[in-house]
Design a protein around this nucleic acid. Structure first.
Length: 260
DNA sequence: AAGGATGTTCAGCG
DNA sequence: ACGCTGAACATCCT
């Protein structure tokens, strides 16, 4: 489920469970999840501790007592899991760390699109991967300037991690629903007011999602997430929700509410 | 039982 | 050089 709000929750979870304990073992069932040789992870993790975490968009950075920073991306189906007994290792816990207090930390990744990497510095990594500031902290000025030269659909733009790090497919649909903007509206045809309304909706969706621990059922009743399905009923217009493809991703919107 | 899935990356093209 | 598109990636779920 991991878009910005989910990864935010994972960060909180890791902070409250897994910091300041010496790592004594590393097990990986599928090394394709490693962006570097397993020996590198052993070298930079074993006998060190997780010290602190930082999140930019959907990327989580774990600073350790060693030299390198662990970079975690959860992909489409990842999540962390901390548990006492080895017997509780989750089915899809492909990577597992063991701490010297006897507990374990699993990186669950059902569909294996997630990965671990190591980096020297968060700033370098952010630069290299062209990540914008985290969407939660992004300024309107920076948002507007990264949109200025673009000429494609607004949905594709807000899902671009170099524009607003952390916005994924469901958030993009929600943001555009909240701002009454059609997903294939071209950015170069949008007024400054419309762009600002998208920006405001982005901030709102992020804060609402975080406040509700990314638990969709607790979102306000006018949130698309409750009826984000073909043929469902739009809260505002009563019209049917439509399903289209935008930038290769399935997109739900309300044609009456989000006019083009 | 085939198609879809909350993500990123990269080749190819204009 | 840059923006854009579509496919590829791996695997599970509906």
């Amino acid at each position: 489920m991991p878009e910005l709000p989910e990864v935010h929750g994972y960060k909180t979870y890791i902070d409250s469970t897994s910091l300041h304990q010496r790592i004594v073992e590393l097990d990986c069932r599928d090394t394709r999840l490693f962006k570097q040789p397993k020996t590198e992870f052993e070298k930079h993790l074993l006998n060190y501790e997780f010290k602190s975490t930082h999140r930019i968009g959907k990327y989580l950075f774990v600073e350790t007592t060693g030299e390198k920073v662990l970079v975690i991306h959860f992909g489409m189906t990842g999540r962390p899991n901390y548990y006492k007994s080895e017997d509780d290792r989750p089915k899809f816990g492909h990577i597992q760390l063991s701490f010297d207090n006897g507990y374990h930390f699993a990186f669950e990744n059902k569909r294996k699109f997630g990965w671990w990497d190591l980096t020297d510095s968060i700033a370098n990594f952010k630069e290299k991967h062209k990540l914008s500031d985290d969407a939660r902290d992004l300024s309107l000025g920076d948002f507007k300037s990264s949109l200025s030269a673009r000429k494609t659909d607004i949905k594709k733009i807000i899902m671009d991690q170099s524009v607003a790090a952390g916005v994924g497919n469901w958030m993009a649909d929600e943001i555009l629903y909240q701002s009454k903007i059609h997903p294939t509206r071209r950015v170069d045809n949008m007024t400054p007011e419309e762009i600002e309304s998208v920006f405001d909706a982005m901030k709102k969706v992020i804060e609402v999602a975080i406040a509700n621990d990314a638990h969709y059922r607790d979102f306000p009743k006018d949130f698309l997430m409750h009826f984000r399905k073909e043929g469902e009923t739009c809260y505002y217009t009563g019209a049917e929700i439509e399903k289209i493809k935008v930038g290769g991703r399935t997109t739900y919107f309300s044609p009456e509410w989000q006019k083009k």
